[in-house]
């Protein structure tokens, strides 16, 4: 790690820590921002680094959210009674019950999705290209529909989450820190992971899976691990997001396949996929624009966002980092002749 890079990390870390103190009113917005960064980073592990474009990563998010909710409530109450439509039970947790339940919930919300990822990887990784994308989309939609049909967890009626015991300011700060720490841990882990042989292996899978396999690479194992890593962090994110929102339901909050599920792809492509920082920058720009248009262009916000995305893919096809990289390769320490020609890749036609 060179020095400017270290300095920059420190600056960003300090900015992250002081942000909720400087702008306490924006804590929740900042916390959701971290979640969005995490979305983009974990998507990129699969989509960018390994070339498996998943449209269903949101399934781990939703699963984590529901596992955490069921654990938190189920430790002390009957979940089925609590989620009944008439909602007659009122949850009253002591601090200890709340934090204990939350800790166990988050832990299991990380483990559960990993198990699912292992199972799914056995089933889905035979699919390639668009088939994989649609297959994973199918899993996410099916998960949402089945959760909605499952009365015990409230079905489409959803679950009201236990209320955070601390005062008004405390709660935002608590979840802000939790989201930030999770995302930074995810960043550090991925950074380390990409510096090992692992990144070479998954890049090889992206570039030519059959050849990688022929060379003796255990592709199935690498793919499984890569997806499990995504699932692990997505599960935690789901658990935190569910608690932060206060009310969860399957279609719009837990498994928002067509909003968050697409956003994570959009953010990664916006910043530049296959890079560590591309998704982060993409998420920053995307999230900022989204919040801005929602405030200042009410009624036009989707038009603004849609036009932005279109302009982005039509004119900045390599993403922001890719665009900068093409202009100023020397900034990235690349000699011009090795500049990757990845931007003009035609995918397999039928």
């Amino acid at each position: 790690m060179t020095r400017p890079s270290l300095a920059l990390h420190l600056v960003l870390l300090v900015a992250g820590i002081v942000a909720p103190f400087l702008f306490p009113a924006h804590s929740v917005q900042f916390a959701v921002f971290w979640i969005f960064v995490l979305f983009a980073m974990t998507w990129d592990t699969m989509g960018g680094q390994m070339g498996y474009n998943s449209l269903g990563n949101i399934v781990f998010f939703g699963l984590g959210m529901y596992i955490c909710a069921v654990v938190q409530i189920g430790l002390f109450y009957n979940v089925g009674d609590y989620t009944a439509a008439s909602g007659e039970i009122k949850i009253d947790f002591t601090d200890q019950q709340y934090y204990g339940g939350l800790a166990l919930g988050v832990f299991l919300a990380a483990i559960g999705p990993v198990i699912l990822a292992v199972i799914l990887s056995k089933v889905l990784f035979g699919l390639r290209g668009p088939y994989f994308a649609i297959g994973t989309l199918g899993v996410a939609i099916a998960a949402a529909e089945l959760t909605a049909a499952w009365g015990w967890v409230g079905g489409g009626g959803g679950i009201s989450m236990p209320v955070f015991p601390g005062g008004p300011g405390m709660r935002e700060r608590f979840f802000y820190v939790a989201c930030m720490v999770t995302t930074i841990l995810c960043y550090l882990f991925l950074r380390w992971l990409y510096s090992t042989r692992f990144s070479l292996a998954i890049n090889a899978i992206r570039d030519d899976e059959d050849k990688a396999e022929a060379l003796g690479l255990h592709t199935a194992r690498y793919k499984m691990v890569a997806w499990s890593v995504s699932a692990f962090f997505m599960g935690i994110a789901g658990a935190l997001f569910g608690n932060m929102t206060g009310f969860i339901e399957p279609l719009e909050t837990a498994y928002p396949t067509l909003t968050f599920g697409i956003f994570m792809v959009a953010m990664t492509l916006l910043g530049g996929k296959g890079t560590l920082w591309g998704p982060i920058i993409g998420a920053t720009v995307f999230y900022t624009l989204r919040e801005l248009t929602w405030t200042y262009l009410l009624g036009w916000q989707y038009i603004a966002l849609g036009v932005l995305i279109i302009v982005n893919v039509v004119y900045f096809q390599q993403g922001i980092l890719g665009w900068v990289q093409a202009r100023k390769p020397e900034w990235f320490g690349i000699r011009v002749e090795t500049q990757p020609a990845r931007a003009v890749k035609v995918d397999g036609k039928p």
Partner: peptide, 25 residues
């Protein structure tokens, strides 16, 4: 026309942008 030669997800993303724009229009 401008995304036709690009990879799978570029066209998907462009048409996603188109979709949300059309919805709100």
């Amino acid at each position: 026309r401008r995304v036709i030669e690009l990879d799978l997800f570029t066209s998907l993303l462009a048409t996603f942008g188109l979709a949300i724009t059309m919805q709100q229009v």
